[in-house]
Design a protein around this nucleic acid. Structure first.
Lengths: 148, 148
DNA sequence: CATTCATGTAACGATAAAAGTAACATCAAA
DNA sequence: TTTGATGTTACTTTTATCGTTACATGAATG
């Protein structure tokens, strides 16, 4: 399939709302920054709202973060938009009559769960505040490389 | 897209070769255990061979592990079949004229690299030997739950 | 040494998850 | 009340993965 950009786009949306809080925060304006379309932005914003990360109001282009950026981790966003989606995937169609085919699914599930836990632990250490700070730092470096 | 099962199938192939070393190790026999097809098995075996994990011989159904199972990690297999494929994917189509769209790609690449490193570190701790042992343990538990 | 069967590899079609698109109900604001 | 926003669903398009077929190359056996 196509690779999922939902996490990347969701971070983009939250960072945009935080950074451009005095500008146009309509789904159309955000979609222009993401280079996507308003429906996708609204879909992702819906997921973020249901996860308690974003406050929106139907009919009004005034989304706000529901928590401080420092209190929102990359893992929170990942869970919000990817649900229980896993990074690694077991092949659930193997021959149950074979010693290997009949047991490898559970074996891999356990192993993949360890990898997933490690990845999620790292995601929990990365806050939206850090990502926003990084974006602003990169922007400053671009605009005045010698001035800083 | 469809979720990739290459890592799962590659582990399956290596475990099958190690466990059923006295049986039929043709790509057709292995494909029956994976419930896939011989061409896919041969493709994955080719990747494992190029990565130095498997020794094969054209024309002869006699594949052998190129290293001890304890010296093959899940990460080795991951690298062999997924190449430099990443677990998380940056959206590389964002508006470069926006503060957010113009900087978030590099910001996310750095963050995702940390997550990738954490996941890979965990993969390095999981050996093929452990996976094989787990498969055999589960098989024993199935056959004689009361006897053990 | 020819037959048989194996691997190695490439090309092409099928499948399925994601993103794109369009439509419309609901709500806010002037 | 008119305009324009969000919220949501249904459908189409896209594309990475997997399945299938084909065939060149090599091993093994009589």
């Amino acid at each position: 399939m196509r690779y999922s950009h939902k996490l990347s786009d969701a971070v983009h949306i939250l960072a945009y709302i935080a950074i451009c809080h005095d500008g146009d925060l309509s789904s159309t304006a955000i979609a222009a920054s993401v280079e996507s379309n308003p429906a996708l932005v609204r879909r992702l914003m819906g997921a973020l709202r249901r996860a308690g990360l974003l406050a929106t109001q139907q009919g009004s282009a005034t989304p706000k973060l529901a928590r401080q950026p420092a209190a929102i981790s990359l893992f929170d966003i990942y869970q919000a938009v990817e649900g229980t989606g896993n990074l690694l995937h077991v092949d659930d169609k193997t021959n149950p009559h074979c010693i290997v085919g009949g047991n490898i699914q559970d074996t891999l599930r356990a192993a993949y769960a360890e990898v997933q836990t490690a990845a999620e632990a790292q995601m929990k250490t990365i806050t939206l505040a850090r990502l926003i700070g990084d974006i602003l730092t990169r922007e400053r470096a671009k605009r005045g490389p010698a001035a800083d």
